[in-house]
Amino acid sequence: MSRIIHKFTRTVPTWQPRVTPVNLAQATPEQLEALSVTPSNTKVSDYVLTLAHDVESLKVRSPLFNAIMYDAGGMSRAERELGAIGASMVNRCIYCAAVHADRHAKLEKDTAVTDELFTKGEKADLSERNRAIFDFARKLSEAPVAATPEDMATLKEAGLSEEEILDLILSTALFGWANRLMHVLGDPVREEVSA
């Protein structure tokens, strides 16, 4: 049996689709190409097989995702993860929040920031810089967007450069996208171990 997870956690759950993923055995040549399936690589997650229903989007999404989260320069990787976490908390995407809180903790070699965020939410006790980053990410993620010129000024006062601010906008916005796939198309679940 599996149980749906409702609380924020750094322990990454399993993602269970609410629609039927593409069956690899019946995939079209375009789908196989987008999935990068080769005879030696036939392991594809249910999430990617679900997205393979829209092969044109799937093909463009991975390079964009990787560039926003991992390209050199600009904002640090850990701070980009904070943008992703801010979005995922607003949208309550438990799965995305877990993956990116885990990455943040590993990059920082410290769980303090994500412990605070998951325990106290908006009232978390954060450094001035992390506070400015998290608040901006949170407000940019609201619908309608709630970030203001004052929030932008706060980022600059906290010492962020133009390049860092652009990376924060991109990583936060990207999770506005990822959350609306992960949280809408599936459930975060944990397998129950029977005694």
């Binding site: 940019l140 993620s141 619908a143 967007v145 970030a147 203001t148 010129p149 929030d151 932008m152 133009e162 601010i165 652009l166 924060l168 906008i169 991109l170 936060t172 916005a173 990207l174 506005g176 996208w177 609306r180």
Partner: peptide, 13 residues
């Protein structure tokens, strides 16, 4: 949802 937030952020910049 992504693109509108990129535009909103750029406008603030």
């Amino acid at each position: 949802a992504y693109q509108l937030r990129v535009v909103a952020g750029l406008k603030l910049m």
